[in-house]
Amino acid sequence: MQNKTRYFIILLILVPVCFSADILLGSTHIPFSIFVDMLRGIEIDETWRIIITELRLPRAIVAVFVGIALPISGLLMQTFFRNPLADPYVLGISTGASLGVALFSLGGGLGMVAIISNFGFASSWGLIIAACLGALMVMLLVVTIAPKVYDTTSLLIIGIMLGSVTSAVVSVLQFFSNPNELHAFLMWTFGSFSGLGWTEIIIMACFIVPLLIISFTMQKPLNALLLGENYAQGLGVRISLLRFQIIIVASLLAGVVTAFTGPIGFIGIAVPHIARMVFKTTNHKTLIAASILIGCNLLLLCDMISQLPGFQSSLPINTVTAMFGAPIVIFVILKGRKSRLHYS
């Protein structure tokens, strides 16, 4: 059997294993037998059922969604910019979402928005809409600017600048807000998979599933784009259309996820690199599928670590992903400096 196939099978088997483990592990340990009973349709204790279906299961599904969305978004951005360190956050999409959330939750201090939901921070619909609008705003700005700058380096710099301006506005809002609101906002910025119900999951699925299908159809022109925009055009790729597609898909994937879970760093950069290292290829046919599988497993693992058994409260997911992601980013830079391996 080819190594590639073997890795794919291992990753495929790992997904349900990690998924089940993520459901079973947590502050309250769920016995494996009860989980099996539930899967077989046998009546189980109501408390277990609620913990599983209302808390653990949505949480694991959100982890899977994040594991799909952020790596694909990062992969698209890295190919688009021909830069190994590009990811959705570079375009300022996540800071755009942060701005939306900040305007909503901290705006009270400025008299802009006075209503904050009583039903907990993350479940507030207004918050989600605000985050999506913020992400969309930055995304539209980038899309407007993109056709005007010829080279991707300029766009990269514009993305970073937009991100800086947006986060500066967020800082100003934080400065003028009261301690309670600030605390709630900071909790959101830590990133969390919990507190999301089935409604939110359905909304996420409505975005992520079509976007996932679109990105699979883009793999052929993406491979041509590896040679650079001029070569790609020479091969018959409509560059302006592909640029537009990549920006929209990558931004929406990152924006939707960020709105629901808070900004989660490093996954967008790190997972495509792990996929390249494991599968030793630049072919997007392999990389998209590999990034999804690795992303799912990694995020489920991160979620398990964040809610280690025995602890009543869970660690912010962002700190866990940083522990995984930061070493990989450093590794990529060191490797790149040695032989300029992945991209120019």
Partner: peptide, 11 residues
């Protein structure tokens, strides 16, 4: 065939 450098490690 262009002058652009192709810098892909794993192709």
């Amino acid at each position: 065939v262009l002058t652009e450098k192709i810098d892909l490690s794993t192709i």
